[in-house]
Amino acid sequence: MDISPFVEKYGSLFIKSKFLVDGLYQGKHRSITFGYSVEFTEHRPYEVGDDLRFVDWKVYARTDRFMVKKFTDETEMDVYVFLDTSGSMRYEAKFHSAILIAGALLYLFNTQKDRVSLYTTSGFFAPPTRRKDELKEMFRYLENITPQNTFIPDEVFMDFSIRIKKRGYIILISDFLYDISYIERFIRFMHKKHRTTVGFMVLSEKEEKFPFSGGALFKGIEEEAIVEVNADLEKRMYLKALKEHKKSLSNHFKSNGGKLITLTDKDGVESAISMFIGGGR
């Protein structure tokens, strides 16, 4: 999708992402692991083997009990942003929203000193980095990319999973309008590897509401086939299928420790990012 008009209007994707993130993100993520830091979290009773350096002697003086201090460990993370650049994302303004989300998240995590990585289904991969110049390179790529062709989910997810070296966030931005089993396998695998997967399901308004009527010949962007349907009749079933697909997808994300955020091209991406930040991991 050509986003140059957008860029002309709002400046570069980088600026837009900064604008999005600065406005919304006010906290910072925390690791679930506990370690050595200055930020105290809680006490726990002393156990044999605990380092005596962490015994809180003041508590001992007051209560005559050995209590060990626990601290939040602030760690660095690798954030892998997976962007679907297949032909179906070209439909309406889906890709526009998708790259805005991608850009915003890249910027967001980079701001937090996390290492960010970008992977697209068209084969582009930028390894995890914290460097601004490399981040800008990613943004330049995003500004110029055009969604096209199709991709084989199994192969792409396999390739993507090989490239994920460290644990952290994996953010999938796609319409997810393909066989759910590929995604399910991928996020289950990632979950086993202690990676958290979050999905942004970007749909167009027409995909969401199916506002067609009468007899029609439907042609997919990625498919060669033409399907003849009565849109009035098909609408109810399409919406039902979409609802089930979303539900199933969401369940897979949730059961593997992640979550699915859905949005349409008519919604602002701010709300989606806000949900991502507000909802925590």
Binding site: L177, G214, G215, A216
Partner: peptide, 9 residues
């Protein structure tokens, strides 16, 4: 019948 280009079938 009108032809409608859709994202995916």
């Amino acid at each position: 019948k009108k032809e409608i280009i859709f994202s995916t079938l």
